[in-house]
Design a protein around this nucleic acid. Structure first.
Ligand SMILES: NC(=O)c1ccc[n+]([C@@H]2O[C@H](COP(=O)([O-])OP(=O)(O)OC[C@H]3O[C@@H](n4cnc5c(N)ncnc54)[C@H](O)[C@@H]3O)[C@@H](O)[C@H]2O)c1
Ligand SMILES: NC(=O)c1ccc[n+]([C@@H]2O[C@H](COP(=O)([O-])OP(=O)(O)OC[C@H]3O[C@@H](n4cnc5c(N)ncnc54)[C@H](O)[C@@H]3O)[C@@H](O)[C@H]2O)c1
Lengths: 210, 210
DNA sequence: GTGAAATTGCGCACATGCACACAAACGCGC
DNA sequence: GCGCGTTTGTGTGCATGTGCGCAATTTCAC
């Protein structure tokens, strides 16, 4: 690997991908970095530079072929296959996640749901039988899973993550407010709406007080 | 305002705040930037510099008083009062949000729930009567609201946001996958788990393919 | 076929954010 | 009250990321 690709670039690619998907479904065949930039609120130069890390996909004087660029991004991000996902913690949030069509639609197959409550285990949620979290470890050893989505109460997050990581899961989406420790070769993303609210209140306060 | 405070700094303050809250509840009275840094995975210098934008809260040779620093952060972030929040779209996700105790516990009062479905309007969710979204505009004019949480289907997000913004709401937490346009004086945060998954798959692919 | 308009890819300069390192300040033990 | 270990606040250099500007290339009209 000659050049190292910055993480900020990787984080922007899904945004490009999403916009390209929309343009493609609208039948657009060509688009310029200018137009992409306007739509996403970033500079055209930014987009061109980001894409140039991976190849020369555009044509001068014309722009980018929408289906071509979409395919390239698909390959770069690994969205040309399907990924196996499990959800742990099928409470109110977990149920919303399990029923969200946006995951399946984007190549993420929710192959199992896990909970610890005896009242829930065995029931059907969105056509899936909820399994006992006690069987998670054994299941993971039988069937490799790519991504774990964690929606248990915060105090159990680390335990669940440890089980996932020990069984070879290398990507975790953590909905609990607790930070979890993982080895460096595991990707973790935290979703905590309260942190967003708290940074917004700073700005609200600024606007008022001056 | 002599110095401009970078947004990245503001975004880190809630992390510090959360850790300080925990330490405070554990009875800790003093903490060093070293220890804060270890816990959060950032350098001690980073933390000291961030805090120094707002004042000199530490004591050399000792560290920071936990209750003192907690109070300072509370004041800086505007968490010393309460904020009025409404949730629009009381589907599966909206219900999970409405029932999440983490908002009330941090000073965010969910004062009303809105939906468009006649089947939902009038029903009780978590002790709140679901109101008709048609009354949102009029309600906002009567009672000022600080933050709007949007959990409607993506295609209605812009409409709902326009209503909120027109009525003077300056902070929006958008759970839909659609980006929304707002004037520059409105704070918007997007929560889109799919974007996280898609950046994680890039890294997963890297690890496999090399 | 030729000139004009458009748009990419990229070198380069600038801005921003981060970590280091150190003087100044504090607490504690004796 | 003095010296030693600790830790802050900040000046400074460095790395990283962003935007500008332009040559090279392509399209299109006539
Ligand atoms: N509801 C929200 O909008 C929201 C928002 C942000 C964060 N969160 C976080 O998401 C998590 C879940 O929230 P919720 O509202 O769905 O809570 P919930 O109480 O409705 O659901 C939690 C579920 O996890 C199960 N569980 C408990 N321990 C478990 C374990 N060790 N293994 C597997 N399952 C276990 C419980 O049986 C329950 O079904 C919490 O950490 C919460 O802080 C929720
Ligand atoms: N469920 C998830 O985990 C999840 C995850 C990520 C994103 N999202 C997004 O969150 C949003 C809601 O998801 P959901 O699973 O709760 O969907 P849902 O269909 O269960 O709920 C949507 C609710 O919005 C109401 N609604 C529709 N139009 C409205 C309007 N104009 N004003 C007010 N209310 C209106 C509907 O009556 C319904 O009750 C969607 O945009 C979805 O893409 C959901």
């Amino acid at each position: 690997m000659p050049i190292e690709i910055p993480d900020v670039v990787i984080d922007r690619l899904p945004l490009y991908y999403r916009l390209l998907s929309r343009l493609d479904s609208e039948g657009r065949s060509v688009v310029s970095s200018q137009e992409l930039g306007e739509e996403l609120g970033v500079t055209p130069a930014q987009i061109r530079k980001d894409l140039s890390y991976f190849g020369r996909f555009g044509k001068q004087g014309r722009g980018y072929s929408v289906p071509r660029l979409l395919d390239e991004l698909k390959a770069i991000l690994g969205l040309d296959g399907r990924w196996k996902v499990v959800v742990i913690g099928i409470g109110r949030l977990g149920r919303a996640i399990a029923s969200y069509p946006g995951f399946e639609g984007q190549g993420f197959d929710i192959i199992a749901l896990y909970d610890a409550s005896s009242g829930l285990v065995g029931t059907e949620i969105e056509g899936q039988r909820v399994k006992d979290v006690a069987t998670l470890e054994a299941d993971l050893k039988k069937t490799a899973v790519d991504i774990g989505i964690v929606a248990v109460p915060g105090e159990h997050a680390q335990d669940v993550v440890d089980t996932l990581v020990d069984a070879g899961v290398h990507a975790i989406l953590n909905y609990t407010p607790n930070r979890v420790q993982t080895p460096p070769n595991v990707e973790v993303r935290h979703i905590n709406p309260v942190l967003f609210l708290q940074s917004m209140t700073y700005h609200l306060k600024q606007r008022r007080g001056g």
